[in-house]
Nucleic acid binder design. Structure first.
Lengths: 196, 196
DNA sequence: GCTTGTATATTCACTAGTTGGTATACTTAC
DNA sequence: GTAAGTATACCAACTAGTGAATATACAAGC
């Protein structure tokens, strides 16, 4: 049985995902994850060699679903690339209003593990952010946007800034402002198609 | 004796600042802070009613020094507002290379305390970010930049995104890209002076 | 069909250390 | 003497991780 589809392992990762995202990795004990999964801690340690290993599995498991969420919002929006990107931010501002929303799990984990830069979970976060940036660059260039790579990076920066600002202010205006800035940058490139 | 200038209290806040920033608030015990300050834990609890209180004092103490750092970089740079803002990011990219750099303490604390949105330390972080945004809006408008408030918010978003991206990728290119995007947005307003 | 062997999967009970916070007593300055 | 400040010693709860036993699944031998 594949490591990824093992049902017990999946139950543990699902439980870890809910708890780690809701409370933060440092505030959730391994016992709590095992109990949430309806298993004992010893079983957890059979499937994961350490808590750090479990944290990395949690973030690895969020990579694809998150990318699909973003791509779904982009594809569903009407209009040009500027409107489609702005729609991602608008959807983000909407879901961020929900009381269960607690920011970007990748960024929060990196913040908690700042003292351990080589931690596998930080690397998983970096991979996800890179994947998102690459997907966005591809989506922009297929909409005939000049300098899609540079633009994608700028939009990622605005999005991570939106996550952070929303987390600290609890005010969706910041997310919408980021979306507006992203759309402005895109339109500047749509018109000119030359470097800024 | 004022609460802020009490020397024993200051020793404790200084010790907390170093440890909390270096390790993260969840990974530093109250005992460790007391020991770093050369005092006992009981003395710490005489001056602070809880660890949460100490965390808030740590962030409150960073507000002014951080603002002065940013303003210093801005003032010292040659050129127009675009160059001055870009200089802030360039300095950020420089200091972020230092191995002791561990991101923005305000954002990291908000990330750790995401499950406690009303926590006094999160509020202290929000106050600091608001102070910075206001200072930046004032600095931009005194350089004759149109829509300084909107622009200041966009730059703050880019900066928080730069902090986050740098923390997860450990690559200063992200910080410089954010500075470049900020300068681009400023120049767009310097030329046109009309809404985007 | 039944036993046995073996690898996988799970549990119970435990450890050694750390945590935030406190009860009590001592010291110093006025 | 008294009040502010500091220290010693302690607690009950919780932490990540482990040792040893057990349960389940499945195949081989007969």
């Amino acid at each position: 049985m594949s490591e990824k589809t093992n049902p017990t392992r999946k139950r543990l990762v699902d439980a870890a995902t809910k708890l780690f995202y809701a409370e933060g990795i440092g505030r959730v004990s391994v016992d709590a994850v095992a109990e949430k999964a309806g298993l004992t801690k010893r079983t957890l340690y059979y499937h994961f060699k350490s808590k750090d290993d479990l944290i990395a599995a949690y973030l690895d498991g969020r990579d694809q679903p998150n990318l699909e969420q973003m791509a779904g919002w982009f594809d569903a929006a009407e209009g040009g690339a500027d409107k489609k990107v702005e729609a991602i931010f608008a959807n983000l501002a909407r879901v961020a209003r929900h009381p269960k929303w607690k920011g970007c799990g990748f960024l929060r984990t990196a913040a908690e593990l700042a003292a351990m830069p080589g931690h596998p979970a930080v690397k998983a976060g970096a991979r996800h952010k890179t994947n998102f940036e690459k997907w966005l660059a591809g989506a922009l260039s297929s909409h005939d946007i000049a300098q899609a790579k540079m633009l994608a990076r700028e939009i990622v920066l605005l999005m991570d800034g939106a996550f952070s600002s929303m987390l600290i202010h609890h005010n969706p205006d910041y997310v919408n402002a980021a979306g507006h800035a992203a759309a402005t940058l895109i339109r500047a490139r749509m018109a000119g198609k030359h470097a800024a």
